[in-house]
Amino acid sequence: MILSNTIFGTSGIRRVFSNYSNEDVMLTPQMALEVGLALGTYLKGDATVVIAKDIRTSALPIEYAFISGLVSTGCDVKTLGIVATPTLAMSLSYLRADCGVVITASHNTPEYIGLKFWNPSGMGYLPDQEEQIERIYNEKSFIKIEWDQVGSVSHVNDINDIHISDITRRIKFDGSKLKVVVDPGNGASCDVVPKLLDEYDVNVMTINAQMDGKFPGRHSEPNKENLIQLSNILNFSKQKDIGIALDGDADRVIFLDENGEIVDPIRLLALLAIDYLKRYKENIPKEKLKVSTAVNSSSLLQDALAPYGCEVIYTEVGDIKVAQALKEPGGFLGGETSGTYIWPRTHLGPDSIATIAKVLRMIAESGKTLRELLKDIPIYPYYSTN
């Protein structure tokens, strides 16, 4: 009798790292090897898989073990190294991949590590896909190959530049008058976000901008408790326009206004949706005039967008659920209270990096501060149940 073991949670596989364990309560290299075999079997050993990782110290052994499992089923692997999750999501269509994998525990504390799988569209794997991989893993029903059928591994060097080029081609503005403080939290976005802002001639100050898997600057989750330093810089300097903070893999981004106050992500989602509608509404099919968000969002989004004829679709919590709604029935923007934003015209994964460009464009073009841009977006009380 084969005992069923649930390895997937709400956002892929995420556990405390251990170099060895007899049980699957922790994520070990042995488990990563067998998950790689299971994914490769699910893909029938005939697929190109793109793999990225964040800066966590345990990402290295998990990556090597996982790749060993994948190539042992015949799959070919392209590695990106340490890059942000949005960059991985963007890369899948560019690299013509069949699947993407991020080795990350997102905003969790440093002892955690995880694996999250992505479809070519940039949307995370759906529950039924994870269930099939989980069944293969539990049954150990891995495909067998011969010695001359082992897959290949190659490295892609310039994917950050490609992501930046894709964003600057679509989103254009002069950022030379903007003064921005960026806090990547020692995470995977330490390189790509300042480099993107340099392309726009933005005046950038960074803190916690050295990649370090121990997160010495602050805890990875960009919440009020962890952003006191950034808030104080904005509040006391009076010469900065906006603060930007990201989590370890940069699927989340939090904005602070010129007074150092955190902007409610749902208020910002409403502002971004209104800006998008003003720019492109005539080109959006009526059936796509929708924004998706999770049920734990406040009703302000619905109230703010109703005058624009825009419907709000409420989903279960999680970026994958929000992305599903954007795919079917359809929509032009999605987001959550955690600070994830999804732009389906490019891909169906959270893209904090493109969102940063869109927010700064609004400020640069209007000549207004973020606080001034938000003045017509209502403030509704929000109570967390975590």
Score class of each variant (00 low, 15 high):
Ala52Trp: 02
Ala304Thr: 10
Asp98Ala: 11
Ile67Leu: 06
Pro222Val: 13
Lys179Asn: 15
Asn186Tyr: 11
Ala188Thr: 01
Val150Arg: 12
Gly334Thr: 02
Ile133His: 09
Val181Tyr: 06
His107Tyr: 13
Ser220Ile: 07
Asn5Phe: 04
Gly331Arg: 01
Ile342Leu: 08
Pro216Cys: 03
Gly260Met: 11
Ile320Ala: 09
Leu300Glu: 01
Asn259Cys: 13
Thr293Leu: 04
Lys195Tyr: 01
Ser299His: 04
Cys190Lys: 06
Val312Gln: 03
Ala47Phe: 14
Phe236Met: 12
Thr385Arg: 08
Asp249Ile: 10
Lys53Cys: 01
Lys368Glu: 08
Val50Tyr: 03
Leu196Asp: 07
Ile103Glu: 01
Tyr341Pro: 02
Gly36Asp: 05
Lys321Pro: 00
Leu374Lys: 07
Leu277Gln: 01
Gln129Val: 15
Asp376Lys: 13
Pro381Ala: 02
Ile379Asp: 09
Tyr383His: 05
Gly335Thr: 07
Ser18Val: 00
Ala38Asn: 11
Lys53Glu: 12
Ile162Gln: 04
Met205Thr: 15
Arg345Val: 00
Phe142Ser: 09
Pro61Phe: 06
Leu300Ala: 05
Lys179Pro: 09
Lys177Glu: 13
Ala270His: 03
Met31Glu: 02
Asn283His: 01
Asp166Ile: 11
Ile167Arg: 08
Val49Asn: 12
Asn5Asp: 10
Pro29Gly: 06
Arg218Gln: 13
Arg279Ile: 06
Glu258Met: 14
Thr109Gln: 15
Asn19Thr: 09
Tyr42Val: 08
Asp303Arg: 09
Tyr280Phe: 13
Ile2Trp: 04
Leu360Gln: 04
Glu199Asp: 05
Asp24Pro: 01
Lys195Asn: 11
Leu3Asn: 12
Arg169Asp: 05
Glu146Ala: 10
Pro127Asp: 11
Ala84Ile: 00
Met362Lys: 12
Gly217Asp: 13
Gln149Asp: 08
Leu60Val: 15
Thr41Ile: 02
Glu130Leu: 14
Ser292Ile: 02
Ile313Glu: 04
Ile2Asn: 11
Asp128Thr: 13
Gln210Phe: 14
Gly349Pro: 07
Asp191Pro: 00
Ala65Ile: 00
Met1Asp: 10
Gln210Glu: 14
Glu287Pro: 00
Ile356Gln: 14
